[in-house]
Design a binder for these strands. Structure first.
Length: 417
RNA sequence: CGGGGCGUAGUGUAACGGUAGCACGAGUCCUUUGGGAGGAUUUAGUCCGAGUUCAAAUCUCGGCGCCCCGACCA
């Protein structure tokens, strides 16, 4: 993609109000645009990061045997009444009346809705288990949106729901999901720790949270760096262990964390509210056992920025970088250099390399270098008069200091494997 | 929802109650071209509404918005 052609321009200064690192960098580097507190647009580069994260999530959820669906954001009050959550969530759910006076709300989550759907499909134990997920906007009237894209009022969530005949089936899937979640976070460049959750409006004792360590975190977690055991603050304060209860040799250290995902064993609460039953092999009607599993997409993106940056800008983990390579044409806009840069760009494109080509004219080398550092793509490739005469390119990893000069073909070969 | 801070060109910042200025950006022209280049020229602003005053960006009140701390966070 050519940088000159996309709706994209970095800012020279940090937004004056923002303190959160993810907000400062994502706004300065023009990945996102803030419309109001907690509500963001995703500009070309930010949109690509978001898409990459979604692809990773999709792959991992599909690998669990889950199928993707899409439920609506606009819900009638009636769908929420039986579970008692029209009232229970009224503080954070956007609720209003349409022109004909009907009560409607914007979805904060979809247990009620998905249970209604399953109710019309699941009849017998032979229909179970089933797993569905969606990746969709959620709306929450947060009393205080904060920390850039870490806590928004409108945000994308992957929410998955599972339906089972019994606890054992749920437990098995729950454990598989735990592993899939950790793969998602790892592929996004983040090390996650699983904690047993203490709170929550529902399923009080059957949920786990996935925590990533960063100063920007809102939560406090005690973790053992030796074995990866983690425990949330409420439980840790109650237990008061100093040594790791799992490996015994590590020390529990209090760190700040961001909750990037959470999973719940719901039991039969929502299936009972929605009359979601199945006939077991004896012909008896039983409520379906459910689980729900969430990942906040933008929160994951913001956390990656919080964890991977330096004073010059973002350092994107490779799998979620908007492009793999930033190709800079620097120096005077002479015809032979332009031709060379175009040729390199075409070769990259032909080989399927995801490349952002800084082909902007009348732009000093310094400006392009600053922008490249700020934007933070994994590889920076420079073509200039100096490179032209050698018929080579200069390659530098964003995460490293040293650059290397090599042939285009060799670089493509190296990066493609 | 409690507490605090803050709203001035696109961005970042000045201005005692008395001419709204500077830098960057953007437009035009010339020069420059490996770490945010230089010159000439143009462009564009006091969040909204009341009040006090001869006079309000500045003082008072109300609203709206943003950020931070706390509470909250299926």
């Amino acid at each position: 993609m050519r940088q000159s052609e996309i709706l994209f321009k970095t800012q020279k200064t940090y937004p004056k109000d923002e303190v959160a690192v993810n907000a400062q960098l994502l706004i300065k580097a023009n990945f996102v645009n803030k419309l109001m507190a907690g509500v963001y647009s995703f500009l070309p580069l930010g949109f690509r990061v978001r898409s990459k994260i979604i692809s990773i999530i999709r792959e991992e959820m599909n690998s669990l045997g889950a199928s993707e669906i899409l439920m609506p954001s606009l819900h009638p009050k009636s769908a929420w009444e039986k579970s008692g959550r029209w009232e229970g969530l009224s503080k954070i759910m956007y609720q209003f009346q349409d022109h004909s006076g009907r009560d409607v709300g914007l979805g904060v989550t979809h247990e009620e809705i998905v249970a209604l759907i399953a109710q019309g499909i699941i009849d017998s134990y032979a229909d179970l288990p089933k797993y569905v997920y969606q990746i969709q906007a959620k709306f929450r009237d947060e009393p205080r949106a904060k920390s850039g894209i870490l806590r928004g009022r409108e945000f994308t969530m992957k929410d998955m729901y599972s339906f089972h005949t019994d606890e054992k089936s749920l437990d098995d899937f729950y454990e598989e999901t735990k592993k899939a979640y950790q793969r998602v976070f790892e592929r996004c460049g983040l090390k996650s720790y699983i904690t047993e959750a203490s709170g929550g409006d529902f399923s009080k004792n059957y949920s786990h949270e996935f925590m990533v360590e960063t100063e920007a975190g809102e939560d406090e977690t005690y973790l053992c760096r030796l074995c990866g055991f983690a425990r949330n603050k409420e439980i840790a304060d109650f237990r008061k262990d100093e040594n790791c209860p799992k490996c015994g040799s590590g020390v529990l250290e209090k760190v700040k964390t961001v909750e990037v995902g959470n999973i719940f064993k719901l039991g039969t609460k929502y299936s009972e509210a929605a009359d979601l039953n199945f006939k077991n092999n004896e012909g008896h009607l039983k409520p379906v056992v459910m689980g729900s599993y969430g990942i906040g997409v933008e929160r994951l993106m913001g956390t990656a920025v919080e964890v991977h940056n330096d004073k010059n800008g973002i350092i994107w983990p490779e799998e979620i970088a908007p492009f793999k390579v930033h190709l800079l044409s620097v120096g005077e806009d002479k015809e032979d250099l332009q031709k060379f840069a175009e040729a390199v760009y075409n070769e990259f494109e032909k080989s399927g390399l995801e490349v952002l080509f800084d082909d902007r004219k009348k732009m000093s080398a310094g400006e392009k270098f600053y922008d490249a550092d700020l934007v933070g793509l994994p590889f920076r490739v420079v073509v200039s008069e100096k490179m032209l005469v050698q018929d080579k390119i200069e390659v530098k990893k964003r995460s490293e200091k040293e650059s290397r000069v090599l042939k285009v073909k060799d670089f493509i070969k190296e990066i493609s494997k």
